[in-house]
């Protein structure tokens, strides 16, 4: 437990939102990596003679790099539009909820 001289620390309420958004970013990165890795090395490890092609590109590449990029962009847009909050960044004077003890 972290305390300062005056007893319990009142953590800036905006940090809760900031922390949540950081975690969303990390989750996106993990999804991005798994998608990228699974299609590339899952489909790409076959013999070249057995490759399928989508729009002229080898299927592993198409799904991993082209579709993967589109999917992650869409997820990001959804996350930003629906999960990210607009909060003031400037140092707020004491008008905020410093009223609870």
């Amino acid at each position: 437990m972290v305390k300062n001289q005056s007893g319990k620390l009142l953590v800036d309420p905006r940090y809760k939102i900031a922390n949540r958004e950081a975690i969303i970013g990390i989750i996106l990165a993990v999804i991005n990596f798994i998608w990228w890795f699974a299609f590339a090395f899952g489909l790409g490890s076959k013999k070249v003679a057995d490759y399928h092609y989508v729009m002229g590109l080898p299927a592993w590449f198409f799904y991993s790099c082209v579709v993967g990029f589109i999917v992650i962009t869409i997820l990001l847009i959804v996350a930003v539009k629906f999960l990210f909050k607009e909060i003031p960044l400037d140092d707020m004077p004491d008008q905020d909820r410093g009223d609870h003890k």
Partner: peptide, 23 residues
């Protein structure tokens, strides 16, 4: 394929450092 690992840079810096860093 390797270069596409850079897509993550487009959002990871601004989410991980994010608003906390700005504040």
């Amino acid at each position: 394929l390797l270069a596409m690992s850079q897509v993550v840079t487009g959002y990871i810096v601004l989410t991980v450092l994010g608003k906390k860093f700005a504040i």
